[in-house]
Design a protein around this nucleic acid. Structure first.
Lengths: 140, 140
DNA sequence: CAGCATCCGTGATGATACTG
DNA sequence: CAGTATCATCACGGATGCTG
């Protein structure tokens, strides 16, 4: 199987250049799955929500406005599996479970929040662009 | 306007604190839609793919491995509407259309790529975490 | 080449009910 | 409280065919 210039390698071997080895632009690369876990609809908000400190399940649920129980649970499992979130369950009654970012998760969340905050700050410009776009389209 | 710790406002008014005004954690806030455009399955890869320079439709399609014509087209429209991508069509035959990031789009892509590259570099750790997680689960 | 229109499957998502 | 299980839906996304 030949590879042309734009193709992307994706192996765990080339340890000396991990960023190329796990290129997300390659369809089969596991890094793409992880990127989707992180940037997914609820993944980004969950990581962002946990950045300030550990939260219990329902605290987090209230923080991430609109997420269902099921989706939050599912998202947390994915993120825990990826090693980004740590789950601390205390066998008390009623049960108490705390979720917190791992060091790796914090690094990810930091970059995510940089994007989020930037976007929030530029929303006026985005909204204006949307209006221009819609106006031109509607006028046709 | 008083704010308690967890509540989130979402108006275009409070121009002095845009980041709070467009809080993405609020369900109804337009910033969440935009965040999804940017971090969505194809949005992030499209923005990342355009970071190095402008590309034609099919060039971009080859770069973002696995994206369908329809999804790329749709993604580009969303990003163009948000003011992140500029579409330059030349009325030649055969048609030539170039897509490039706007200044705003570049800023977004920069932050996105920071996240992507970090993730790519940490994939060994992520993969290992996944194996541990799966091993514990399978053993039960 | 650069798309749009259409059909259509399936997986993501949300609502509801139930458990420890 | 902290979830799991089940079901219904519906939008996402792929394949195909067509246009300029």
């Amino acid at each position: 199987m030949e590879e042309t210039a734009t193709s992307t390698e994706c192996t765990a071997e080339a340890a000396d250049d991990a960023e190329l080895a796990f290129n997300v632009f390659s369809k089969a690369c596991p890094s793409r799955r992880t990127l989707e876990d992180v940037t997914g609809r609820w993944g980004s908000l969950t990581l962002g929500g946990l950045y300030e400190g550990s939260l219990r399940f329902n605290e987090l649920r209230r923080r991430v406005d609109g997420v269902s129980e099921k989706m939050l649970s599912q998202t947390l499992h994915s993120l825990e599996r990826d090693g980004l979130v740590h789950r601390e369950a205390q066998p008390t009654n009623p049960p108490r479970v705390d979720y917190e970012l791992t060091p790796l998760g914090r690094d990810v969340a930091e970059r995510l929040l940089s994007l989020i905050h930037f976007l929030e700050g530029r929303m006026p410009a985005v909204l204006q662009a949307q209006q221009s776009y819609d106006a031109e389209r509607g006028a046709l």
